[in-house]
Computed example of a mutant assay.
Amino acid sequence: MVTLSFLMEDESRDDRSPLLLEAPASTALAAVPQRCPGGSHLDTFLLSRRNNLGLSLALLLGCYAAILVPAYSHADRLAPMDDGPPAPPHLALLNLSADLLSGPCLPQWGRDRLRTLSCSGGLLGLAPVFVEGPQEEVEGGGGDGPPGSSPLRWGGGCRRCVVVGSGGVLHGSHLGSSIDQYDVIIRLNAAPLGGFQRDAGSRTTIRLVYPEAAPASPEEYRTTSVVALVVFKSLDLDWLTSVITKRPLSFWSKLWFWRKVVEEIPLTAEHFRILNPEIIHQTGRALHSYAPSGGTRVPTLGASAVVLALQLCDQVSLAGFGYDLRHPGARLHYYEALRMDAMKGQVVHDIGSEKLFLRDLVSSGAVTDLTGAL
């Protein structure tokens, strides 16, 4: 290797003689250009290298700063990487409903699977489901003008049924068009359709009500085939007689309802039924086996509607079921701003036992949960 020895120039010399590069005698040294008054080519080369090295270091540090500084200073605002944005929840619900409706209807499907449950003893063969004698089969539909058309008919064939609950989980589900494709659509009390068709659908085959919770708007009955009264007290029959005959309810009777009741329903007599009380009774007995203390409370209309559906239809689906009391700020109903914590104070229904009961129905395959909250 060639060793270069740089000699410092003596500024005091007058002869300005060039400085020579010394090398060991044994090393052959190529000719080196003489130094010019303005500086040698070697100095220019070395100066250029130093400048390039400094510039490179500056650029390198700048790149590191551009990458590392934002990463550390904004790490708390960065979201983890994934394969893409998650699909909106309602798409999964629509796919489940579409798969169910696209397949063939399976006769006796729900009742066959209900038999596998220990609580099913009193829930099978509860006919007639209405008080009026022989079992009448419900005709799916609703149409635009139920008055004057027969809502019930004798008939057979496999039918799919959906029970639409009032739970907040239905809000934003976009299940309305799927719900409308079922043969029998069962709704509860005053749960409205107007303004909520996208999530809840637009047709009603059977609306289960008790007098204090019947819809007040005439529009809610426009596409309703049957209003089925759930009787809890003898006064409820007075109310039903009043709305069928179009005669005013007496002032004395009105005083005994805990809430103002609807006095006029724009349907004719053939569109009213009375739910068989045995449906409520046997639903309560089934829930009794799930109650930790063995106590018995009044079943919700939703649980009773599920038992009704299992009598009427071959395949049963649920939408809008599942109260989750662990989230007190969650929406209680799909149609109002009331929150879940409003359920904590009620003592009439055993929500926990009902959820266990419905979960067993889902796990056995007796019913399908379209909104996935059970």
Results as ranks from 00 to 15, higher is better:
residue 325 L to K: 15
residue 122 G to D: 08
residue 26 S to H: 12
residue 261 V to F: 05
residue 293 S to E: 14
residue 55 L to H: 15
residue 287 L to I: 09
residue 4 L to E: 03
residue 30 A to I: 14
residue 11 E to M: 11
residue 191 A to E: 04
residue 304 S to V: 05
residue 267 L to Q: 07
residue 57 L to E: 11
residue 107 P to R: 04
residue 251 F to E: 15
residue 21 L to Q: 07
residue 31 A to M: 13
residue 270 E to R: 12
residue 291 A to M: 05
residue 171 H to R: 09
residue 179 I to E: 00
residue 338 L to R: 15
residue 88 P to K: 03
residue 102 S to G: 10
residue 72 Y to L: 10
residue 281 H to I: 09
residue 365 G to Y: 14
residue 125 G to I: 03
residue 337 A to D: 12
residue 232 F to S: 11
residue 366 A to H: 10
residue 177 S to R: 15
residue 131 V to G: 12
residue 355 K to R: 15
residue 126 L to C: 09
residue 213 A to F: 12
residue 331 R to S: 04
residue 133 G to C: 05
residue 75 A to E: 10
residue 297 R to I: 01
residue 63 C to R: 14
residue 211 P to V: 01
residue 332 L to V: 05
residue 362 V to M: 06
residue 32 V to K: 04
residue 296 T to A: 12
residue 100 L to W: 14
residue 345 G to T: 06
residue 270 E to A: 08
residue 52 N to Y: 15
residue 181 Q to V: 07
residue 94 L to S: 01
residue 190 A to Y: 12
residue 264 E to T: 10
residue 68 L to H: 02
residue 316 V to I: 00
residue 171 H to F: 08
residue 133 G to L: 02
residue 112 D to V: 06
residue 256 W to I: 05
residue 92 A to F: 10
residue 287 L to G: 08
residue 284 G to M: 04
residue 116 T to Y: 09
residue 39 G to Y: 08
residue 327 H to C: 05
residue 253 S to T: 01
residue 186 I to D: 04
residue 368 T to W: 10
residue 250 S to Q: 11
residue 265 I to S: 02
residue 80 P to N: 09
residue 102 S to E: 13
residue 281 H to P: 01
residue 216 A to L: 12
residue 204 T to V: 07
residue 183 D to F: 03
residue 297 R to F: 09
residue 362 V to Y: 10
residue 20 L to C: 11
residue 11 E to F: 11
residue 44 T to Q: 15
residue 326 R to S: 11
residue 177 S to L: 11
residue 99 D to L: 13
residue 216 A to H: 12
residue 117 L to Y: 09
residue 205 T to Q: 06
residue 215 P to L: 02
residue 22 E to V: 12
